[in-house]
Simulated scan of single mutants.
Amino acid sequence: MTSAAHRRPTNAPEDRASALHARAEATGLSGVVHVSRGDEVVLARAYGWADRARRVPASVEHRFGVASVAKGFTALTIASLVEEGRLGWDDPVRPVLGGDLPLVDDRVTVDHLLDHTSGIGDYLDESALGSITDHVLTLPPHVLDDTEAYLPMLAPHPQVSEPGERFAYNNAGYVLLALVAQRVAGVPFPDLVADRVLGPAGMTRTGYPRSDEPTADLAVGYLDEEGPRTNVLHLPVRGSGDGGLATTAADLAAFWRALTTGRIVPLAAVERLVEPRHVVEDEGMRYGRGFWLALGTDELVLEGYDAGVSARTAHDPATGVTVTVLANTSDGAWPVLREPADD
Rank of each mutant, 00 (worst) to 15 (best):
P141D: 00
P92W: 06
Y150C: 01
E165Q: 14
D146Y: 07
P188W: 11
V104F: 08
D115C: 12
P152N: 09
E126W: 10
S161D: 15
V136I: 14
E83H: 08
R94I: 09
V175S: 06
A168R: 15
D91Q: 14
H142A: 10
L97V: 06
S118C: 07
G130A: 11
D146C: 11
H157I: 05
A172P: 00
A155H: 09
V197H: 05
E148R: 10
L81A: 12
P156E: 14
V175C: 07
T77P: 07
R196G: 11
P200Q: 13
D145G: 10
T147P: 02
R196H: 09
F167C: 12
S118I: 03
L154M: 08
V96R: 02
P140V: 10
L192C: 08
D145V: 10
V110T: 15
A172R: 00
G202Q: 09
G186K: 10
E162F: 00
V82R: 02
G119L: 03
D191Y: 05
L139G: 06
V197P: 10
E84Y: 02
V193Y: 08
G173F: 08
V187R: 01
G199I: 01
D125A: 12
H157V: 07
Y150W: 15
V136A: 08
P188F: 06
L81Y: 07
P163F: 10
A149D: 11
V193F: 06
R107Q: 12
G130S: 12
A128V: 04
V160Y: 06
S118A: 14
H116G: 07
H157G: 09
P92K: 04
G186S: 09
T117D: 01
L114I: 13
Y174H: 13
V175A: 05
L113I: 08
R107A: 15
A128F: 04
P140H: 11
T109R: 11
D145A: 13
V96P: 00
R196T: 15
W89R: 09
F189N: 00
T138N: 14
L87I: 02
A168F: 01
D91P: 04
G121D: 01
V197W: 01
G98N: 07
P190K: 01
R196L: 14
W89M: 00
G202Y: 07
I120P: 01
T133G: 03
L139I: 04
P188K: 11
R94H: 09
A194T: 15
L97H: 07
L124K: 11
A178Q: 14
G99Y: 06
L154Q: 02
E162V: 13
L101Y: 01
L198G: 13
V136P: 10
E83D: 15
V93M: 07
L179G: 11
L139R: 15
V193K: 05
I120T: 02
R86D: 03
E84T: 03
L97N: 08
P95T: 13
T147Q: 07
L151W: 02
P95Q: 12
P141A: 05
P158Q: 12
V184C: 03
A155E: 15
P156D: 13
L192H: 04
S80F: 09
A168T: 07
L124T: 11
R183N: 03
L151M: 06
E126Q: 12
D115S: 12
P152Q: 04
L176C: 14
V184R: 06
S131I: 00
D105N: 12
L129P: 00
L124A: 14
D91I: 04
W89T: 08
W89A: 00
L129Y: 12
D100R: 06
L103G: 07
D111T: 11
M153K: 03
